[in-house]
Design a protein around this nucleic acid. Structure first.
Length: 547
RNA sequence: GCGCCUGUAGCUCAGUAGGACAGAGCAACUGCCUUCUAAGCAGUGGGUCAGGGGUUCGAAUCCCUUCAGGCGCGCCA
């Protein structure tokens, strides 16, 4: 619908000998009486053409040769051109929608471009919490969205399985192991205190018995560390599985060291003269690329920092020749952006190569009161607990009805209380209702095949035309969501569409005595169902047949 | 102190590349189930878009500034 309109406007501009602007803006007016679509081009051109916008709009409208696709074209307000499509046109479009389905709905924007999206990447030192859940829902939905738009997407989880934190995890488990077997062993000051540590220790005792009792940690640290984080990782994986999130690759940090990628990355930077020694440490000259201070990459004690492997990691990403690299981070890591982008530039790529999408913090509430969380004390609510309590679809939907960069209050009580009237059910219910209409139709012996051949002209009441027009805007919403990397636009659209279907359902009967009309209305329902399912699939939300 | 994000209806949030009278859900109140699922529908009320300047034909949207909240500013990860 939009493509056709843009073409028409471009042709008209050409006829008038006006150079077309880089972008012909088409918008969906919020006020339906203004028509289906509107363009402010006349107002935009007014400045360069030095003519009043209304005059330009008039000329433009006159230059449109074939007006048959429109019911009317108005010039309104300060110079908007409002288009209302003819019924004939929208019937033919909706027919295409039913025949071509996702091909009609989804614009091929990516054209096969390769994108890597890295998200969650939580340390395997504890269970996922709600913040990770937000990153998970957002990352997965964005991945699906871009994939639907013709990108080839790799979903990646980066595992911090090297370094200090996993060692501390290992030590924590070691300490609990000793304690459980009756040895008086001090729990490390900086250790992880969550109950899951004890659980790992218990399982370990079951599997391996007492053979590590009374050993020194240094002798068995590799075993305990490996064992513990692998256990954590598999528990994270199973949480994600239940949350409906899947990855294509799990990139291990340790692997980067093993393969020598870290060494290679450092050599690369050294060769570029971007590494220097100071105070017994090695520094990366990130200030050369806009960072506010240089960063240590080899500490005085000879160990690497967290950032060092990140250099190697991002170098590896870039060298895999993705067309686009997207990192989704929790907003608490925003201080890292310039540093990592500095790496990209340092190795000779434009920093725009890497897009970092920040997902803001989640405040967990229970009945308006903040839930106190302390990772140190091991007191925090996990993603697992939340999805057990409020459900995965509801949880995801709450995340996906917000812009990623807005702070989010997640009230467990509200989420549960709403549960029966939650917006997610509103959307799913529309689909389930349609299924039930189809079941009814089949009982009545109405042919539900090839509905696009139904006599769509019979869809003539105001509500029906409104729904058809809404359905036809889906590709525009989709395109906007893809370009802005904002899956939540799909969420809102689905709510609006459902908000048109339910009243329609309530006011009119789909299955009537008139079989041709019934088929036409079934066709409308089918079209709605196609769009609802397309949207829900992108969001990663389930599509129950019955409710 | 510096940097990033946010401030829209009682609450939680949208507001589409500055555009036409600011929207939804929840909460509140009033109605609707012998007919395709009431997780639904119909109706009512509710806002100086944090405050103040500026740019523009036009600003919730862009710029400056003040205030408020969150998060960062390690040879931690």
């Amino acid at each position: 619908m939009k493509k056709d309109l843009v073409k028409i406007i471009e042709d008209a501009l050409k006829t008038l000998g006006i150079e077309k602007p880089t972008h012909i803006e088409i918008e969906i007016p919020q006020n339906e009486s203004f028509g289906d679509m509107a363009t402010p081009v006349a107002m935009i051109l007014a400045a360069t053409l030095k003519k009043p916008p209304k005059k330009i709009a008039e000329e433009l409208v006159n230059a449109i040769k074939d007006k048959s696709v429109f019911e009317k074209i108005d010039i309104a307000g300060p110079g908007f051109i409002n288009f209302t499509f003819s019924k004939k046109y929208i019937y033919s479009e909706i027919k295409k929608l039913m025949k071509d389905k996702s091909k009609f709905l989804r614009e091929d924007i990516g054209k096969g471009k390769r994108v890597q999206i890295e998200f969650i990447s939580a340390n395997p030192t504890g269970p996922l919490h709600l913040g990770h859940g937000r990153g998970a829902a957002t990352g997965a939905a964005l991945s699906n969205l871009l994939e639907a738009a013709g990108y080839k997407v790799d979903r990646e989880y980066y595992i911090n399985d090297a370094g200090k934190q996993v060692r501390i995890l290992g030590l924590s488990v070691f300490a609990r192991y000793q304690q459980l077997l009756g040895r008086d062993y001090p729990f490390p000051e900086e250790g992880y205190r969550g109950g899951y540590i004890e659980e790992i220790a218990r399982v370990l005792i079951k599997e391996e018995g007492e053979k590590y009792l009374k050993r020194a940690f240094d002798e068995v640290s590799d075993f305990f560390t490996d064992y513990s984080y692998k256990r954590m990782l598999s528990s994270i994986d199973s949480d994600l599985k239940d949350f409906g999130i899947a990855f294509d690759t799990w990139q291990s940090e340790k692997e980067l060291y093993k393969k020598g990628d870290v060494e290679k990355a450092l050599d690369d930077l050294k060769n570029r003269g971007l590494i220097y020694e100071k105070d017994g440490a090695a520094w990366f000259k990130s200030t050369a690329f806009g960072d506010d201070k240089d960063r240590v990459i080899i500490k005085q004690d000879g160990e690497y920092t967290y950032f060092t492997s990140d250099i190697a990691y991002h170098r590896q990403k870039v060298e895999k020749k993705y067309d686009e690299i997207i990192d989704i981070w929790g907003a608490d890591h925003h201080g890292y952006i310039t540093r990592v982008k500095a790496v990209i530039e340092a190795i000779g790529y434009p920093k725009e190569k890497l897009k970092i999408l920040l997902v803001q913090m989640v405040t967990l509430l229970r009945g308006r009161k903040p839930v106190q969380m302390s990772k140190r004390a091991g007191k925090f609510i996990t993603l697992r607990e939340v999805i057990d309590e409020v459900g995965t679809d509801t949880t995801k939907f709450i995340f996906l009805t917000r812009r990623p960069d807005s702070h989010l209050e997640f009230d467990l009580e509200a989420a549960k209380a709403q549960s029966s009237e939650n917006p997610v059910f509103y959307v799913q219910y529309a689909n389930a209702r349609i299924n039930s209409i189809f079941a009814h139709a089949r009982e009545k012996g109405i042919d539900t095949d090839m509905l696009y051949n139904a006599d769509l002209k019979l869809l003539s009441v105001h509500e029906e035309l409104r729904i058809i027009r809404k359905l036809l805007t889906y590709p525009m919403i989709f395109e906007g969501a893809v370009n802005a990397h904002e899956p939540h636009r799909i969420t809102f659209y689905l709510q609006e569409l459902s908000g048109m279907f339910h009243p329609y359902y309530n006011k009119y009967r789909v299955i009537t005595e008139k079989s041709e009309q019934s088929r036409a209305r079934l066709a409308l329902c089918e079209a709605i169902r196609i769009v609802l399912q397309d949207g829900l699939e992108i969001l990663g939300i389930s599509i129950p047949e019955k409710m």
